Amino acid sequence: MEKVNAVILDKMQSDVALIPQLASHIIAAGGKRLRPMLTLAAAQLCGYREERHVALAACVEFIHTATLLHDDVVDESDLRRGNATANAVFGNQASVLVGDFLFSRAFELMVADGSLEVLGILSRASAVIAEGEVMQLITTNDTETTEDAYLDVISSKTAALFAAAARVGGVVADAGRPEVEALDSYGRNLGVAFQLVDDALDYSAHKATLGKSIGDDFKEGKITLPVLLAFRRGAEEDRVFWRRCLEKLEQDDGDLEHALDLMARHNALTDTIERARHYGARARDALGIFSDGALKSAMIDAIDFTIERAY
Results as ranks from 00 to 15, higher is better:
2 E>I: 09
2 E>N: 09
4 V>H: 00
8 I>D: 01
8 I>S: 01
13 Q>K: 14
14 S>F: 06
14 S>D: 13
18 L>H: 08
20 P>M: 05
22 L>W: 03
22 L>D: 02
27 I>Q: 03
31 G>C: 05
33 R>L: 07
33 R>W: 14
37 M>Q: 12
37 M>E: 12
39 T>C: 10
39 T>L: 01
41 A>K: 03
44 Q>H: 15
45 L>P: 03
45 L>H: 08
47 G>H: 12
48 Y>D: 09
48 Y>W: 09
51 E>G: 07
51 E>H: 12
52 R>N: 09
53 H>R: 12
54 V>G: 01
58 A>I: 06
60 V>R: 06
63 I>K: 02
65 T>C: 08
65 T>G: 04
67 T>I: 03
68 L>P: 11
79 L>Q: 07
80 R>Q: 04
84 A>K: 13
84 A>D: 14
95 S>V: 02
96 V>G: 06
97 L>Q: 01
108 E>M: 06
109 L>H: 04
111 V>R: 05
112 A>D: 13
119 L>A: 10
120 G>H: 14
123 S>L: 11
125 A>W: 02
127 A>C: 14
132 G>K: 02
134 V>E: 11
135 M>F: 14
137 L>W: 07
139 T>V: 15
140 T>A: 11
141 N>S: 12
142 D>M: 02
145 T>A: 01
149 A>K: 14
149 A>V: 11
150 Y>M: 01
151 L>Q: 09
154 I>A: 06
154 I>V: 15
154 I>W: 02
158 T>K: 02
159 A>K: 00
159 A>V: 02
162 F>V: 02
162 F>L: 07
163 A>P: 00
164 A>I: 06
172 V>D: 05
173 A>V: 02
175 A>L: 03
181 E>K: 09
182 A>G: 11
183 L>N: 06
188 R>M: 09
190 L>G: 02
195 Q>T: 03
199 D>G: 08
200 A>F: 10
203 Y>K: 03
203 Y>D: 00
205 A>D: 13
210 L>Q: 15
211 G>A: 08
213 S>D: 15
213 S>M: 13
215 G>Y: 11
215 G>K: 13
216 D>A: 14
219 K>R: 15
221 G>F: 00
222 K>N: 05
223 I>H: 08
226 P>F: 08
228 L>Y: 03
229 L>V: 10
233 R>K: 12
236 E>T: 08
240 V>P: 01
244 R>A: 05
245 C>V: 10
248 K>M: 11
249 L>R: 14
252 D>C: 04
253 D>Q: 10
254 G>C: 06
256 L>V: 12
257 E>P: 03
258 H>R: 09
259 A>F: 00
262 L>R: 04
263 M>Y: 00
265 R>W: 09
266 H>W: 12
270 T>K: 15
270 T>L: 15
277 R>W: 14
279 Y>I: 04
280 G>V: 00
284 R>N: 06
284 R>K: 08
288 G>P: 06
291 S>Y: 14
294 A>I: 11
295 L>T: 15
297 S>Q: 12
310 A>C: 13
